[in-house]
Amino acid sequence: MLDFAALPTVDPMLPRPFRVVRVLRETSDVTTLTFEPADGLATIAFGPAQMGMVGLPGLGEVPISFSSDPADPSQLAMTIRRAGAITSALVDLSAGDSVSMRGPYGTEWPMEAAEGHHLLIVAGGLGLAPLRSAIVTALRRADRYRSISLVYGRREVSEVVFADDLAAWEANPAMSMHLTLDRADPDWSGPIGLVTSRMDAALLDPASTTAMVCGPDVMMHAVGADLTQRGVARGKIWLTMERNMKCGVGLCGHCQFGPLFICKDGPVLNWATAGPFYLIAEV
């Protein structure tokens, strides 16, 4: 028998007003927005890789992962790429503008479970955004990991996001950087190739590695298969996924990936759980 009196009464679909406090144009198409609540209540505290439903009243909402340092909720930020009408409008916002916000939703990067391991972070393009929170969290307690490596692949040199962070990470002795560009470019003197081409250098000890991967589906599929083949346990390869999402709370059905709801079972899933479904076309 259902106990209706015990059920929550606040509609999880009801957003809160937030205000843009800082705008950082990463590239022509990508902007990092920093938000603060506009309703006088506490801001959203999130874990690495968790997402929020951010929107503009009258335009709609989109799921975006938080890209700021989870330890500092006062700097709550999202890094957004111009794609459809909603993200385009978000990218063009200025400080002081209002947005709607709900969250945080979904699973987190297993930062604690990865302690004692080599931490291998693999990002493709804007896939770096949900990994940024993992990197800053890991660097704060770098001694707990045997090593921290970032493999970051891009299509274009101009596609770079978090330029300041990348420079700081390059200079950080706790961090081993493996940057690559998909194809040759006169402005790029580093390695050419997909992220998987950097694994020989980046993957130190497959048996004691935890990988955290984010990028386009096809890239995550390739990395999942590659790392498995190289001996990383399927349960230690973590991905963060994206799917069409209308609610973020398991009620709209859109984000299903096999039996999984990306909004609540994900977005962070391991290759043992998600891998089999990657093999099914149009799942």
Binding site: L59, E61, G253
Partner: peptide
Amino acid sequence: FCVTTEPVTSLGDESAGEERRWD
């Protein structure tokens, strides 16, 4: 139970809203 959400605006009125319908 699948649903989608649709933004709603009205002319001559600054308010906005969200509707939900069966999808």
